[in-house]
Design a protein around this nucleic acid. Sequence first.
DNA 1: CTGTCGCAATGTGTATACAATGATCGCATG
DNA 2: CATGCGATCATTGTATACACATTGCGACAG
Lengths: 249, 249
Amino acid sequence: MTQRQPASTAAPSDAKPRKRLGKNGDGAERHDAIYRSISDAIIEHRLKPGARLREDALAEVFAVSRTGIRKILQRLALEQLVTLTPRRGASVTRPTAEEAKDVFDARQMVECGLMPDVARSITPADVGELRDMARREREALRAGEQSSAIKLSAAFHERLAQLSGNATLAEFVARLCSRSSLILAVYGNPGHLGCESHDHDELIHFLESGDGERAAAFMSRHLKAIEASLSIVEEVEEVPDLQRIFTEN
Amino acid sequence: MTQRQPASTAAPSDAKPRKRLGKNGDGAERHDAIYRSISDAIIEHRLKPGARLREDALAEVFAVSRTGIRKILQRLALEQLVTLTPRRGASVTRPTAEEAKDVFDARQMVECGLMPDVARSITPADVGELRDMARREREALRAGEQSSAIKLSAAFHERLAQLSGNATLAEFVARLCSRSSLILAVYGNPGHLGCESHDHDELIHFLESGDGERAAAFMSRHLKAIEASLSIVEEVEEVPDLQRIFTEN
DNA sequence: CTGTCGCAATGTGTATACAATGATCGCATG
DNA sequence: CATGCGATCATTGTATACACATTGCGACAG
């Protein structure tokens, strides 16, 4: 696509409505919507790790120019949801086994460490919201909607972190949850989703009764269970074999 | 481009080779160098919180186009070193008191939690490197070079986190250290730098002897001491006073 | 038939031109 | 003299055009 034909061959009428509208204020919101759209697609495994994301294609799909797409792609790259190889373009990140371990260790430390704070400051309204999220997650799981279930599970953990009151750590947890979703896509077993739905309900119970210690211990087991359910089989590296072979000598 | 200065101010670099050179491979490295240059300037307090960063000016200084600068600015914004207001441009972030608390709470949790891992896997070579860094920091402090001392202190904490072997958490700590530097710039007392230099040496000692628990406890005290040295005087907001007055009623 | 060299196509990196918006300054009027 | 309104300016947001690198395919030679 991308008519780089100057003006002569450019089909005048059908080519670009490419409406100049959207220039004004809503541009930022538009970009944010596109960002979320791509991000959701990755988290819900509708875009699988390794999938290539061509700028032209995305620009056409969302009816914006490549410039905007590049910005969004960069943001996704910084959050490590997509990988940007210097002259090869963007693709959905394929986490390594090492990254998977790091991410779950980090979640172990941060999410468990946050539980006491959450238990201390949680309100009945928060409990209600969490129960609702857990319920919706269970329903999605029962309905066989893997995509929704994955996103809702991540959203639950994110919301939990937000309740700690520490925005910085909450954002970090959100990032880790996104990456976890990616890890699940690569190393997870098909039938077995990460979070057991009843786990979340039980966790809410501990938090509701203000028992931060027990909640932390339960969260620890919960995360360990997810990590244990992965089948980390470090497949042979595609490319860097050569590099290592020659640098080792 | 922006030559609104006739010739009077005599921009020294007005003779722009500005050639098409640099297009090829080194572009990425160039950008990374610029990124580090700006990042360092912020961390070293040579760019103070609130300082405006105009794209044109930066583009001219580093002899690249605004496109590249925008990319770098976005990256800095995602790391919360600069704030990007929709149509007002970029400026060095001025952390709020709440952010400061969040950042130090996060450091407390993560850096202390990392100490046992570091104590377990540290090697004599690592110890030597850390001692060297602590020494250089002390020297900078004694020489009155605030800028260098601040950066070296942050680098020490970053390196420490790297030694844990968890790249994800190490990167998070690096981010937190950068923001801490910003916080120090706003709330720190002039004469009193964040880290007492001997603290770092003592910390190394605990790690060297493999005592992760004691190292964690010491790190906790260390961070608490830094936080306590801040004068968090939420200055009266310039504008939003009115906002609050009307929303409170 | 196979291996190597070269060309073309695909696709990203960078720069520049253009549009829109918020800000500042000046002028006019009450 | 002060205040409100209008115009110009400065600065960012967006799109497009162009240049370059990499890769895949085809042709030619051995």
